[in-house]
Amino acid sequence: MMITLLERVVYEEPSNLFTMAMPPIIFLSLAILGLAEASGIHLQYSKFCINMNFMNMVGSSSSSSSSHNHSVIKLSSRTGMLIVYTPPFLAGVASFILFSGGDSRFLLVKSALTFHFFKRVMEVLFVHKYSGGMVLDSVILISTTYFTTTSTMIYTQHVVQGFQEPLIDLKLFGVVLFLLGICGNFYHHCLLSKTRDQKGDKSYKIPRGGLFNLVICPHYLFEIVQFLGVSFISQTTFSFAFALGSALYLTGRSYDTRKWYLSKFENFPKHVKALVPYVF
């Protein structure tokens, strides 16, 4: 029954090693990262950047912290995030030149991915207010993942041109989800930036307003909705694998984010969940 449903919502795809191997690779990679986040092993950015972890360690000597600090390369958050989001944005732009043809679905996929990363670059430059830095290893890993997944999603959409389309067309529903996700994500990023209303303020506060009154990571929730929207527009195996894998990663990250807020703020409201209102 599950196979029959998948056949109705997923493109017929060419049987080549690349298109067959990439969906399980990206799904498992993101799922493992999500499990690591939930277990306290983090990609080093934002509140989980390694320097903040050093400050919170108990019983570590200053000499050992100093020697460990020298073993990592740390960038400013603004620089790190630009390195993360610029390559996939350029991949999206290049796709309009490299794959100038295609049907309306292909145009929507290219446009959605390009606009998503354009928005991210603009937020890095004009919206976000930063508390710390990013470790270079994490910057390279995240940037490579975004660039690879964006390029693969676009390429996969290119190679299915001319193949049998899914019997159930989800692309208009996908457009609605994408727009809802990108607007909700932007709105809550703006609310986050307002928690630091003074220049140079790098302290953390409990964010308020919007869905922050119900969950601590509504920006992650809307990012999941956004990538789900892209997968509904695309309707390829890879796009669904990426959307599900991203959801698992962001679930793990949000779970430990809530734990972090609970540990830092005695007045953190216990009814505020991690990701899904009233549920999780």
Results as ranks from 00 to 15, higher is better:
Ile3Met: 07
Leu5Val: 13
Leu17Asp: 10
Met20Gly: 04
Pro24Gly: 09
Pro24Phe: 09
Ser29Lys: 03
Ala31Asn: 13
Gly34Pro: 07
Leu35Met: 09
Ala38Arg: 13
Ala38Leu: 11
Gly40Trp: 05
Ile41Cys: 11
Leu43Trp: 04
Tyr45Cys: 07
Met52Asn: 14
Gly59Glu: 05
Ser71Ala: 15
Thr86Asn: 06
Ala91Gly: 04
Ser100Arg: 14
Gly101Trp: 01
Ser111Met: 05
Ala112Cys: 15
Leu113Ala: 11
Leu113Asp: 10
Phe115Leu: 13
Phe115Thr: 12
Phe115Arg: 04
Glu123Lys: 03
Val124Tyr: 05
Leu125Val: 10
Val135Glu: 04
Val135Ser: 01
Val135Ala: 02
Asp137Ser: 11
Ser138Ile: 02
Val139Thr: 05
Thr144Pro: 01
Tyr146Ser: 08
Thr152Phe: 00
Ile154Ala: 01
Tyr155His: 02
Thr156Ser: 06
Gln157Asn: 12
Gln157Tyr: 01
His158Trp: 01
Leu170Met: 09
Gly174Glu: 02
Phe178Glu: 03
Gly184Glu: 06
Phe186Pro: 00
Leu192Met: 13
Leu192Asn: 08
Gln198Pro: 03
Gly200Trp: 02
Lys202Leu: 09
Pro207Leu: 14
Gly210Tyr: 10
Ile216Met: 10
Pro218Gly: 10
Tyr220Thr: 07
Ile233Lys: 05
Ala241Asn: 10
Leu250Ala: 05
Gly252Asn: 06
Asp256Thr: 12
Thr257Val: 06
Trp260Met: 04
Asn267His: 14
Lys270Val: 08
Phe280Asp: 10
